[in-house]
Nucleic acid binder design. Structure first.
Length: 561
RNA sequence: GCGCCCGUAGCUCAACCGGAUAGAGCACUCGCCUUCUAAGCGAGUGGUUGCAGGUUCAAGUCCUGCCGGGCGUACCA
């Protein structure tokens, strides 16, 4: 709709160019916005304001000429000049109602677009190391990352979901030592306990399972415990598999899946880490100092150079990170988005600098990042501490068990990633209209309740008659709903482009709110069959859009509650 | 100290990448209510968009400097 109006304006501008009102060479960017105030019509353009100066005319005079040059079109019922020179467009009732027919015919496909043109994009998210259960921060990463994937797919991208983890580094060694200590019956306070060992109770569970000879089936590995407390390698294999399986179960409970699990260790096994070091040395961006090998990241915007190879000969984490992202590029991903906690934001400059130093033609801004800020959890008005110390550790599983997957998802994704988030457990649990998840799901369920009620009352829903009657729906509530429905594809496009799934949550809350208001103020199941079918058709369209939007958030759309 | 993110109603958040009189929900105040499933519905009060400058027809939005909060600032990831 916006595009069509923009095209009409474009034609008017062309005509004014050929008649000399607008300088032929002047570049014109047509912008059509939704209006905030309905007295300003449905759509508005600032075109006259931007053209006033280059054309040497007052904005309102400019607007008059544009309107005069505007081709006739049945979409539009009225055009006005307002304020300093805005051109306000009022859509004809019929064209506004058209959206409902579109929704009903397109169903689940409504709102999707082909912007991505089927190009590959890889989204890396969660990427938790298998050293413990997923916590709320990972949950935010999972909710945002998964929704991002759904959103990109809805915008026509071919999405690959990837989970990267380290199964062999210093932290894994630490994990293995901790499990081994537990397997030998030690506790964190015993003298033989490893220096920075993991103290959580879950370590004991891992050790017991290992000593029981359990078989572990994680998504990407399968291991049986050999029950030998002295076999370090076996314990490591088992512990990693055990914790990976726990994470898989958490992610399944959350409805999040991955296409690829990528091991940091594979980068060493395949020689990719070594090849990356060699390449960096060859390109002349390294130097030795203090028995370590440094990369001149300062040449690419970092505020200090970084160590790649430590004095002890091992590599710092960021080198495999560079090798990993080179590998992504080599796999054909021209676009890569990393969803991570903001506590890792210092890696952004480093990884990008390393990729530039390779001099392989990888674009400067590669990869993209979506960084989410910290999550604070509250219950009973009090902050629940997220600490790794055993006892008061808020795991993702705890949250899902307590408030359900839908509410957890919604709350974690409904705020922009770059602002801090307060997760109110009491609110997420509550089954009232204060709870936005409940409120939106209930709007969807209400549509289906309506259809059931309709049958109970002995009516039959005649969709075609409903569609034909749509132009007769002229109540303010009805027009407002149609306007909101028309904006859904824009919301999908905008959220996809800005990588902000939170926009969908906001949209849905507004739509649900308008639908509830409409439902409360007006009777749907009236005797007049034409009007009844028209209203039900509108309601069904609302239900469809609610379902489509909820799906983008990974939240279910129940038909009854 | 330096870098990144954030600062909008008492609270939780919007505001379609520069547009018109900054919008919702909760809370508060006042009405209505026994209704297709919901103790619900409607209306109202509430703002110098952290502060100070700048850019322009137009700034919550862009630039500069402060103030406040968060996260980083490892030869940890």
């Amino acid at each position: 709709m916006k595009d069509q109006v923009a095209e009409l304006l474009n034609q008017a501008v062309s005509q004014l160019k050929s008649s000399g009102v607008i300088p032929e060479q002047h570049p014109v960017r047509i912008m059509v916005d939704n209006t905030r105030d309905k007295s300003h019509g449905d759509l508005a353009s600032n075109i006259a304001l931007t053209l006033a100066k280059p054309c040497g005319q007052p904005p309102r005079a400019m607007a008059e000429q544009i309107i005069a040059a505007l081709p006739e079109n049945s979409l539009i019922s009225k055009v006005e000049i307002a304020g300093p020179g805005f051109i306000n467009v009022f859509l004809a009732g019929a064209s506004s109602a058209e959206i409902v027919a579109d929704i009903l015919s397109q169903g689940a496909a409504f709102g999707r677009n082909t912007t991505g043109q089927g190009e590959k994009v890889q989204v890396e998210f969660v990427s938790a190391n298998p050293t413990g259960p997923l916590h709320v921060g990972h949950g935010r990463g999972a909710a945002v990352g998964d929704s991002l994937c759904r959103l990109l797919a809805a915008n026509g991208w071919d999405v690959t979901r990837e989970f990267y983890y380290n199964d062999a580094g210093a932290q894994i060694k630490n994990l293995t030592l901790s499990v081994q200590a537990r397997a030998k019956g030690m506790g964190p306070d015993d003298s033989g306990w490893p220096a920075d060992g993991y103290r959580g109770n879950y370590i004991t569970d891992v050790a017991n399972s290992y000593m029981n000879g359990d078989t572990i089936d994680a998504d990407d590995r399968h291991v049986t415990g050999v029950a030998d407390a002295d076999n370090f390698d076996a314990i490591q294999q088992f512990a990693v598999a055990y914790l990976r399986r726990e994470q898989d179960l958490d992610l399944k409970a959350f409805g999040v899946r991955f296409d690829v699990f990528f091991l940091e260790s594979s980068l060493y096994d395949d020689g990719k880490v070594e090849a990356t070091v060699q390449r960096l040395i060859e390109q002349g961006f390294t130097y030795e100092s203090d028995d370590a090998l440094w990369l001149k990241t300062t040449e690419f915007g970092d505020d200090k150079d970084r160590v790649m190879r430590k004095r002890d000969g091992g590599y710092t984490y960021f080198l495999p990170d560079v090798a990993y992202h080179k590998d992504k590029f080599d796999r054909g991903f021209k676009r890569v988005i990393n969803e991570q906690g903001a506590d890792h934001h210092s890696t952004v400059t480093r990884v990008r600098a390393g990729l530039q130093a390779l001099q392989l033609g990888i674009p400067e801004g590669y990869p993209d990042y979506v960084l989410h800020q910290m999550v604070m959890v509250t219950k009973g008005g009090e902050e629940v501490k997220i600490s790794k110390r055993a006892g008061d550790y808020v795991t993702l599983r705890d949250l899902i068990d307590e408030v359900g997957s839908d509410a957890t998802r919604y709350f974690l994704v409904s705020r922009r990633a770059d602002s801090q988030l307060t997760f109110d457990i009491d609110l997420a649990r509550s089954q009232s209209n204060d709870n936005p998840v409940y409120y939106i799901q209930y709007a969807h369920a209400r549509v289906h309740a309506l259809l059931r009620k309709l049958e109970q009352e002995g009516h039959r829903y005649d969709q075609q008659q409903g569609i034909d009657a749509l132009s007769k729906l002229e109540l303010d509530d009805e027009r407002a709903l149609m306007t909101q429905l028309r904006r859904y594809p824009e919301a999908v496009a905008h959220a996809g482009q800005s990588l902000e799934p939170a926009g969908i949550a906001t949209f849905l809350k507004d739509l649900a709110s308008q639908f509830h208001a409409y439902y409360n103020n007006n009777r749907m199941l009236v005797d007049d069959a034409e009007l009844r079918n028209g209203r039900v058709a509108l309601a069904v369209a609302v239900g469809q859009v609610l379902a489509n939007g909820l799906d983008l958030l990974g939240v279910s759309a129940p038909e009854s509650m």
